[in-house]
Design a protein around this nucleic acid. Structure first.
Length: 780
DNA sequence: GCAAGGTC
């Protein structure tokens, strides 16, 4: 007979065996699963690691055919729990048959308690014995010994709260996903799945909310007054204390008052030291954010690489919430290991500084230490063991971050001048890095100096120019993956280990995609979120997750029974389901429009839009007798629209017809055509739909210069037709950019000729920027 | 085929 211990993973089992046995244990294999045997105080001990959850919920067999089962039925069906990892279950049974006592020693959290209960359930089918719980928040020797010397009762409520989560997540996810998928398939031919879940949907919701902000953004003009100063031939710029001025008249008045000033007086000067401390140690979320931001590696990939580095013994366990090191953490041995090779100079400088001090964070998840290197290895070693493209980059980030935590703050010298010009205050700031500190080892953060000339208080400086710069407020930027992770973390969407997978699910479903580090929402994702937002808005928001979380927290706290929480949670899901169901047709029609039919997907060029009659796909059809827009629902749906007879047709995806045409086409290079309406030049709303691409104000009248493209030539003309024109480059593709010229406020133009680099320039002939040549030191 | 949570 023996005392049988179950841990969450093999690594924990072997470590605990090592600690309890003083290193004297045997490694056996039971049903292919490692088991660690030893003797302690005259008793036989057997410790086995599980592999996370080894059981899982699913609906009974007869509910598995989507077509034969109304999704709503799932809400009244109890899922059943089955073993998902057979060999582990078999090993548990074998161990249990010889057990005099069982100790659950999984991670000290909700899922850990639940995983322990899975082993308990399987074990108790074989024999009876007392079941105890060992609670420890790290795998340190003192904690482990203490936990095993003070065993407690397993926490049933805690385990059941995870049970409630599993059942509610499955019910909701399965019912909503099947409902949406089947509803859309009634209207569009697709094999794809439209999934909805309590984590993936609010994750997409964040991206959707940002997209709406961008779409609805109304830019406002503002003006700012800047001065270019000169001190002994060195130029530098200052910004008027008034900052952004929203009224043009106010800016003009101020500008007029001081524009001819030739001298400025340095009224105040201050030089201060600013310290920037190293970042907190890496927990999983912080690691994933930095891998994305600094290395451009997706969270999913980064976690996988960290897992491999961990399995190779190079870095520590990658899934941790903790961002502070334990007080007795052995930094010195690690530093000694790094005192030769790539990181030699940093390791030596830390050691030689005497006392080793670490910048610590404030989170302690009582799980694992922050992610840190375990072994000092070379690039070669890493690449041989971990055959993934960015393995070395990730290892390097972890090592540098670890070393940075042990280094001093970076010291910047910040210089400020207040310069008076005609009684107005201009602020000038400069920054010089005096002591790199931790930045030395951390090349990921930029640290550009902004230099200023050596001038003193009450000194006079020359004013080369005063500028009245027109600018406009810009919409918020699209979310990066790092920012999305931050939002998820903040709102409790997913866990450290699952957050990347929720992002991945959204990509897989075609809801959003990443371009570099930024996330772009796709049509399907936007429309899904938009329809959900108008029918069951809680689904799109973190609130859905919070509602379930609060229910299961009540189970953990003993305030609700498992059955009570399940009933309440199911009630909430049913309510949402019925709201969704009542708008089924409208939702399905909108969603179908974003699903490109199998035939149409291969033929994106001809895809026009959604059929207003049946919700299927409209596409351009060419026959011997001409061309027209038809519906993929034909012959069931006979909707058609005429097309112009000649000219190449391109669908302008970003253009919307103000009169309700299904899509806007460009005909050759000549004119635009709204499907269902006709040519745009006969439409009184043409100006509204196609506003001229204004480049800047007309220097002659109060009109605006805009880009005119006619048959063979192009130039800038005035909206008032005052006759003023200006030439632009003849060759290459020309686009008007939203960025403004820093000197005159005109829109910058971009020209891209074949096989040449694109060039951005200001087309304003009178741009003051054109006369200026060099002599500027300011780099920013 | 559906969710989210563990871990390999």
């Amino acid at each position: 007979m023996s005392i049988v211990v179950f841990t969450e993973k093999n690594k924990a089992a072997s470590q605990i065996a090592g600690i309890l046995s003083g290193g004297h244990f045997n490694r056996a294999s039971v049903e292919g699963v490692p088991v660690y045997d030893f003797k302690m105080n005259g008793k036989e001990w057997r410790i086995m690691g599980l592999a996370g959850h080894i059981m899982g919920y699913d609906f009974p067999e007869q509910f598995n055919n989507w077509r034969e089962c109304d999704p709503a039925i799932l809400l009244d069906t109890d899922p059943v729990k089955n073993v998902t990892k057979k060999s582990y279950a078999a090993a548990i049974s074998l161990l249990a048959s010889g057990a005099e006592e069982v100790v659950l020693a999984c991670d000290f959290d909700r899922e850990g308690e639940n995983i322990g209960f899975e082993a308990k359930t399987i074990a108790e089918k074989v024999a009876s014995f007392p079941v105890k719980r060992a609670r420890f928040s790290s795998l340190s020797a003192s904690e482990i010994k203490n936990a095993f010397a003070n065993l407690v009762e397993p926490d049933y409520n805690m385990a059941m709260s995870a049970e409630a989560r599993q059942i509610l997540d499955l019910k909701m996810g399965a019912a909503f996903t099947r409902f949406m998928t089947l509803a859309v398939r009634e209207k569009a031919r697709t094999k794809g799945v439209i999934s909805i879940g309590p984590c993936q949907t609010p994750t997409c919701g964040f991206v959707y909310e940002r997209e709406k902000l961008i779409k609805n953004f109304q830019s406002k003009d503002f003006w700012k007054i800047e001065a270019v100063f000169d001190a002994n031939g060195t130029e530098f710029t200052g910004a008027h204390r008034g900052g952004h001025i929203s009224e043009k008249a106010k800016a003009d008045e101020l500008f007029a008052r001081i524009k001819n000033c030739k001298k400025g007086l340095v009224d105040k000067k201050s030089v201060k030291q600013a310290l920037t401390s190293p970042p907190y140690p890496l927990n999983t979320t912080e690691f994933l954010k930095r891998a994305s931001k600094f290395l451009g590696i997706s969270p999913e990939n980064a976690l996988e690489i960290a897992e491999q580095l961990y399995l190779s013994g190079f870095t520590s366990y990658p899934r941790t919430e903790t961002n502070k090191y334990a007080e007795d953490f052995d930094f010195r041995s690690m530093l000694v290991a790094f005192s030769s090779g790539t990181y030699q100079r940093y390791a030596l400088s830390i050691i030689s500084a005497g006392e080793i001090k670490c910048r610590n964070g404030t989170k302690d998840g009582h799980d694992h230490p922050p992610i840190h290197p375990i072994k000092a290895v070379s690039r070669d070693d890493v690449e041989k063991s971990v055959r993934m493209p960015d393995a070395w980059k990730v290892y390097d980030l972890i090592v540098r971050h670890f070393l940075a935590n042990l280094m001093g703050p970076a010291v910047f010298e910040k210089t400020r001048f207040e310069i008076l010009v005609g009684g107005e205050i201009f602020d000038v700031t400069g920054s010089v890095l005096r002591d790199a500190g931790w930045l030395e080892v951390y090349p990921f953060e930029t640290k550009n100096d902004k230099l200023l000339p050596a001038i003193e208080e009450k000194e006079e400086v020359g004013v080369k120019e005063i500028k009245n710069i027109k600018s406009e407020t810009t919409p918020p930027k699209r979310l990066t993956e790092a920012e999305l992770l931050t939002l998820m973390d903040k709102h409790g969407i997913g866990t450290k280990a699952t957050a990347p997978s929720h992002i991945e699910t959204n990509k897989k479903r075609g809801y959003f995609e990443t371009k570099g580090k930024t996330i772009l929402i796709l049509d399907t994702g936007f429309t899904l979120m938009d329809t959900l937002d108008t029918t069951v808005s809680i689904l799109v928001k973190p609130e859905i997750r919070a509602r379930i979380e609060s229910l299961i927290q009540d189970v953990e706290d003993g305030k609700k029974t498992l059955d009570g929480a399940l009933a309440e949670g199911t009630g909430l899901i049913k309510e949402m389901y019925s709201q969704l169901y009542s708008s089924k047709d409208a939702i399905a029609a909108r969603m179908a429009g974003t699903i490109t039919d199998e035939q149409v997907t291969t033929d994106k060029k001809n895809f026009v839009g959604t059929c207003p009659e049946c919700g299927r796909i409209l596409h351009m059809i060419k026959t011997e007798n001409g061309r027209f827009v038809g519906c993929t629902g034909y012959p069931g749906c006979k909707k058609t629209y005429p097309l112009p007879k000649t000219g190449a047709l391109t669908v302008m995806r970003s253009q919307e017809c103000s009169k309700g045409g299904v899509a806007v086409l460009k005909v050759g290079n000549k004119y635009n055509w709204a499907v269902g309406i006709g040519p745009c030049f006969t439409c009184e709303l043409e100006k509204k739909c196609f506003p001229p691409e204004v480049v800047g104000p007309c220097p002659v009248c109060d009109g605006s210069m805009f880009l005119i493209s006619v048959k063979d030539s192009r130039f800038l003309g005035c909206t008032n037709r005052c006759g003023h024109t200006q030439s632009v480059p003849k060759g290459g593709r020309l686009t008007v950019l939203s960025t403004l010229c820093e000197h005159c406020g005109w829109h910058m133009l971009r020209v891209k000729e074949k096989e040449k680099d694109a060039v951005e320039f200001c087309a304003n002939r009178q741009c003051p920027g054109k006369k200026r040549i060099s002599g500027r030191i300011n780099q920013n």
